[in-house]
Amino acid sequence: MGSGLFAAGAPVRIRKLMPPGHVRAPAYIRGKHGTVERVIAPFKNPEQLAYGLPAAEQMLYRVRFSATELWGDQAENPRDFIEAEVYAHWIEPQDPTHAT
């Protein structure tokens, strides 16, 4: 999981999974398209640390989403952005057919 590396600016999609338990990808970004704002650093996976499990390091990224990608017509202003920290195992490459 999450072995692929993304560079700053890379178009990505957040995995659309709804697993139970301690999860660090907020639900409102799952399945949404964005771009990597910056690559931060590897950190031990908090989703494993939370249960006292041996935690593998996962690269942490900041991913930028447009307000319209997240909220559609309800977005207050199409120029606005929401940025969140997302671990590598939640990120997949963007489908090239996705129209931005």
Partner: peptide, 15 residues
């Protein structure tokens, strides 16, 4: 103003 971009930062992890 409408021409100002709002950047919301969701502090979801280690930053």
């Amino acid at each position: 103003g409408e021409n100002v971009t709002v950047r919301v930062h969701d502090s979801t992890a280690d930053m």
